[in-house]
Amino acid sequence: MKSSVVKRMVIVSAIIIATLFLGEMIHLSIVEKNNFKVDLQISKLYYFFGFGTLFTYLLL
């Protein structure tokens, strides 16, 4: 039983991290493709929310 909980935590953690990087890549490609001017470093925001979500999940 313990291994199934650990396995689920690893899978969900991997999904969260993959979503973080995939979302950032899609966002950056849209910005580059449409030549938008972005003054913010959006990657820091993605990392903040992604790792915050991961931290919260692992605590619960």
Rank of each mutant, 00 (worst) to 15 (best):
Q41A: 07
L40T: 14
N34Q: 09
K7T: 13
K33Q: 12
K44P: 08
L60K: 10
N34I: 12
V38Y: 04
F55Q: 05
K44L: 14
T53I: 11
R8Q: 01
I17N: 01
V12K: 10
A18T: 15
T53L: 13
S13I: 06
L54D: 00
I16K: 08
K2A: 08
I30P: 00
K2P: 02
E24T: 09
L54F: 14
I26K: 08
L59M: 06
K33I: 00
V12L: 08
V12F: 05
G52F: 10
L28K: 12
F21Y: 13
F48V: 11
F48T: 15
A18I: 12
S29H: 09
G52V: 09
H27E: 02
L58A: 09
T56C: 13
I42A: 03
E32Q: 12
N35V: 08
V6P: 00
N34L: 15
I30H: 10
L58E: 05
L40S: 07
K37V: 15
L22R: 03
T53S: 12
S13F: 04
K44E: 02
L40M: 09
V38K: 03
I26R: 07
I17S: 06
I11H: 00
L20S: 02
A14S: 14
Y47D: 02
Y57P: 04
T56D: 01
M1L: 02
T53V: 11
Q41D: 14
D39Y: 14
I26P: 05
S3G: 02
F48D: 04
L28A: 15
S13N: 01
T19I: 06
F36V: 13
V31N: 04
V5R: 03
L58D: 06
F55M: 09
S13R: 05
L54H: 06
G50M: 01
L28Y: 10
K37T: 15
M25Y: 14
V10K: 04
M1Y: 09
M9V: 05
T19G: 15
D39C: 12
F51V: 11
V12I: 14
T56W: 13
M1S: 10
L54I: 06
M9P: 00
V31I: 15
V6T: 14
I11D: 02
E32H: 10
E32N: 15
Q41S: 10
K33R: 11
Q41G: 07
I26W: 02
M25H: 10
S4T: 11
L60Y: 11
V10C: 05
V38G: 07
I15T: 12
V5C: 01
S4I: 13
V12G: 01
I17C: 05
L22V: 15
M1D: 08
S29I: 12
S29C: 10
Y46K: 02
I16H: 05
V6D: 07
K33E: 05
A18H: 00
Y46I: 03
G50E: 01
A14G: 15
F51C: 00
I26N: 07
Y47S: 05
T53H: 01
T56V: 15
N34D: 10
V10A: 13
L54Q: 03
L28T: 14
N35M: 04
I16G: 09
F55E: 01
L58I: 12
F48S: 12
Y57T: 03
Q41V: 09
L54E: 03
T53D: 00
Y47V: 09
V38H: 07
G50R: 07
N35F: 05
F21S: 03
E32V: 06
